[in-house]
Design a protein around this nucleic acid. Structure first.
Ligand code: MG
Length: 457
DNA sequence: CATTGCCAGAAA
DNA sequence: TTTCTGGCA
């Protein structure tokens, strides 16, 4: 329920709010917290940042080392925390009351794979304790022989618990499992399996040959399905602690949809400002630079309710400096808009209505690479870069040096090559609509004036 | 619901 | 190869 609704039912409720900056959610505190946790969890083995609050760890090596160096059968050496693990398949799933778990850790059923798993579980217990002590977050974990099973197990006992999937219990775990519970099968593919093949549990999947699954879903997906039904996933844990892209976006639902280029420019500038800030942080903290700038938008057309086409994403080489990013983003937007309204060669005729409304805007930076480790001066590094990727742009030569410098000093507001409609629309769309019902004509008239695509170069 | 971010596959 | 779309979480 919504916060306001909850407050009526429960006036004492403490509602936690996501911070807002530049008129949008600011997830900075969560990103920081996530990074801190990653820095702890990455201590014992290869670590892949899977999301803002999840990682995969490949602890094979650490576990092998532990197995080689420690006697497994010494109960005193096994931490209380590790012994609190849930171990799937011990007895009849009657929540294994301590004794069987102890026994499993001590013997691990003589199976080398499960001995490794037991060591992995001990390492994970230690890591989770460190997260609790150093970052003051609890977390849950799954320990299994591959990513898919570990992810599945991590969700089985929450919060602040860990679950082990011994090799021998994989079948019994998967067989009755509703297909939609599997990662990647929670959406359309899962629905298709249910509707088109009558597959409701992972066990049902076992009845289909790899070839049959490939017929329905293609070579790769077919093979993938055949494998995951058997608990097989060759998916490697990538060694990556940092995100591969940064983005800033905002949605403008219903009456908040943006209908003037001034408002689009305003919001795009806000989003670009945030992105630019985060890119500089990444540069300072991680010595990485992004190479591609991409704009996504969602839109609908005012007149035809059956607007079939989607607003196309557009990307271009990324130039550092807030003003550069803002300028490039706006150009990308208009490139997309021109396509969207279908005025490619058709010069916007005087009477032609291109009534559009933007319901979502997002700008992102990708192709992020570490600068060569020997690079001492980032400024000089940029000097060498700017020449290479301004290819399609006109002659901003005199600015490129400044731009490189800018990105370092973090000040770029004065750089404005582009002559846009200069006015900032202080009149919020939704505010405006409170006062005047969206008389289509009126809005379109505003579009006519302000949406002119004249500045597209 | 909103704001991310990853990836596979198709298109350019 | 890069760009763009769509799916997924
Ligand atoms: Mg998560």
């Amino acid at each position: 329920m919504r916060g306001a609704e909850a407050k009526q039912v429960c006036p004492e409720i403490q509602l936690v709010q996501v911070p807002v900056a530049r008129g949008k959610a600011d997830l900075g505190v969560y990103r920081s917290a996530g990074s801190e946790v990653v820095s702890i969890l990455s201590r014992k083995g290869r670590c892949e940042r899977a999301s803002i609050d999840e990682v995969y760890l490949d602890l094979t090596e650490s576990a092998e080392t532990m197995l080689a160096e420690l006697p497994l059968d010494r109960l005193e050496l096994i931490s209380e925390e590790a012994l609190k693990s849930h171990v799937l398949g011990l007895d009849v799933d009657g929540d294994n009351a301590g004794e069987s778990v102890r026994k499993w850790f001590l013997g691990s059923d003589a199976d080398h794979r499960d001995k490794l798993l037991a060591c992995g579980a001990r390492i994970v217990a230690e890591l989770r304790l460190q997260v609790l002590e150093e970052a003051e977050f609890t977390c849950s974990a799954g320990i299994a022989h591959n990513k898919m099973l570990a992810k599945l197990a991590s969700g089985m006992n929450k919060p602040a618990q860990q679950t082990v999937v011994p090799f021998s219990s994989v079948k019994k775990l998967l067989e009755p499992l509703p297909i939609k519970k599997m990662k990647q099968l929670g959406g359309k593919l899962g629905t298709s399996l249910q509707v088109d093949l009558g597959v409701n549990t992972v066990g049902d999947l076992l009845h289909f040959s790899e070839e049959k699954l490939q017929e329905h879903y293609g070579i790769n997906t077919g093979t993938w399905l055949w494998n995951i039904a058997r608990g097989i996933s060759g998916d490697e844990v990538e060694s990556r602690l940092l995100p591969k892209s940064h983005g800033a976006g905002k949605t403008f639902p219903g009456p908040r949809a943006l209908k003037t280029s001034a408002s689009v420019e305003k919001w795009l500038n806000e989003l670009c400002e945030e992105l630019s800030e985060r890119l500089l942080s990444d540069l300072e903290q991680n010595k990485r630079i992004a190479h591609t700038l991409t704009l996504h938008a969602n839109a609908y057309k005012l007149n035809d309710s059956e607007s079939v086409n989607k607003f196309p994403s557009k990307s271009c080489p990324l130039r550092y400096g807030t003003a550069k990013i803002q300028e490039d983003a706006l150009n990308l937007f208009y490139a997309g808009l021109r396509e969207y309204v279908g005025s490619n060669n058709i010069k916007t005729k005087g009477n032609q209505r291109h009534g559009w409304a933007i319901t979502g805007l997002s700008i992102s930076a990708s192709k992020i690479v570490a600068i060569p480790s020997g690079t001492h001066s980032i400024t000089k590094y940029f000097h060498n870069q700017v020449q290479t990727h301004t290819s399609e742009k006109q002659s901003n030569d005199i600015f490129t040096q400044d731009a490189a410098h800018l990105s370092y000093s973090g000040n770029g507001s004065y750089l404005r090559l582009h002559s846009m409609c200069p006015q900032i629309n202080t009149c919020e769309e939704d505010t405006r609509n409170k006062y005047s019902m969206p008389s289509l004509n009126q809005d379109e008239d505003q579009n006519e004036v302000r949406q002119g695509l004249a500045h597209i170069v």
